[in-house]
Nucleic acid binder design. Structure first.
Lengths: 242, 242
DNA sequence: GTGCACTTGCTTGCATACAAGTTGACGTCT
DNA sequence: AGACGTCAACTTGTATGCAAGCAAGTGCAC
């Protein structure tokens, strides 16, 4: 345990992961993609054995994937019963967007407090993200780029804890996007709004960036289709199940 | 993130949990307690086999516990190497307290927006928590009551997503408290400040509750001993290990 | 003495076997 | 017919065995 600092700093063992990802990672990616692509829908019941058979692996790595997905809010494991796909409703969408607004506005304020130069540099980095966004066309790619944009924005505040919280939040955001059936249909609007925010930061107008960001999140909520009747119980449209 | 609540609350299916909790839960509780009580300290290296042998169970449930603890930020598992206890430093303490301030102030504002009656009721419930706090004397009990107080405060905002985020945050807070070696020495001050906040809410002075809360969090940071020199590298005081 | 391949002892990753719990259906008794 | 007990087909929970990976130490060749 003398070289623990090395362990903490250097991630040089990851070369093996590129050659042959662990079975647990494959299971995680498979289930997550199936969830995000609508193969599994709200209320579906999954079992470790079924997924393991589908992937040709044993239950052990699938079990690990289930736990990770439960921690990220995608699944809910019931003892001795199975795992159900957690349904999302307007309540959740409102909650996530409210939380995102809170964290992202905080990030902008913290960024502005770090000085004009930091604001400009962050805006520049975000603009580069937007350029990539305009090129990427696949749904999965658009998802990933949206994640990098917003996570970079929050990360620019310099608070690692808040950044970690936001990553958790983003998982739920992706679940909402998937459930909204809108998917990447509004990707163009997203990119345009991202670019506007990045430009405002790059030109050192943080106050306008705040306003643009708030508008952006409101627009995202509206486009998701969950904006109406926030008090509606989430179970309204998810009663049917296998 | 809320699987702990699930385990504690969702006992309606199986009566076995009262007699014999799952081995994975025992392993989780054992490691977590050891972490919080200082048996394991920052940088320590744990292996599944060792813990399994200590508890007289197999590696499988220990493995599950490791994953949960990693998700909560206590451990970091390195492939084929083992799990190290994540060290915490002033940077983390500042980040956590800043995030807590952000979320808890948001909660107070959201609570105030829900109306005077909601504010009074929440203050009343919090006062009841404080009464329990004054009775409980064991360190573990004090920890748990502090958790219920702050989680109830944040939960009163009515945003389940933010509440979930805050629970995640609280795990890190507990780790910081443990690392600060201050532990429950300042429990009396905590309780007094909690009571002041609850009273302000009960008497419908939310603005003062805001101020008291900010003071409380600043005091917590100060008492933790991590308040000075936030840029200091985290390894400063954590070199010694068993 | 120096450098390098090998060996050894640790670790995790995965597959498999078995134990235990839950559910729903089926048959039987009243 | 209706209620009730039994059971069979699922599920997860845990233990165990084996393969593979990583790091340090050992000994040999130079």
């Amino acid at each position: 345990m003398h070289q623990l600092a090395d362990i903490l700093c250097g991630m040089r063992h990851n070369a093996c992961m590129t050659i042959q990802p662990k079975a647990a990672d494959r299971a995680y990616a498979h289930i997550r993609d199936s969830l995000l692509d609508g193969v599994y829908t709200s209320g579906d019941l999954l079992s470790e054995g079924t997924v393991a058979a589908d992937l040709g692996i044993s239950r052990t790595p699938v079990r690990e994937a289930f736990q990770r997905l439960q921690n990220e809010g995608f699944l809910r494991v019931y003892p001795k019963r199975g795992a159900v796909v957690v349904p999302v409703g307007p309540e959740d969408a409102h909650g996530v967007l409210q939380a995102r607004l809170l964290l992202e506005l905080f990030a902008l304020d913290a960024l502005a407090a770090r000085g004009a130069e930091a604001v400009r540099e962050t805006g520049e980095a975000l603009l580069r993200d937007c350029e990539q966004e305009q090129q990427g066309t696949t749904p999965a790619g658009a998802r990933e780029l949206g994640r990098t944009f917003h996570c970079r924005l929050v990360g620019s505040a310099g608070n690692q804890v808040v950044a970690g919280l936001y990553e958790t939040l983003w998982n739920q955001q992706e679940r909402i996007s998937a459930a909204a059936t809108a998917g990447p249909a509004h990707a163009a609007e997203d990119v345009a709004e991202h670019a506007a925010i990045a430009t405002a930061l790059h030109e050192q107008r943080p106050a306008e960036a705040r306003r643009l960001l708030a508008d952006h999140l409101a627009a995202v909520l509206h486009r998701s289709g969950f904006s109406g009747r926030p008090g509606l119980p989430p179970e309204a449209g998810t009663s049917a199940s296998a």
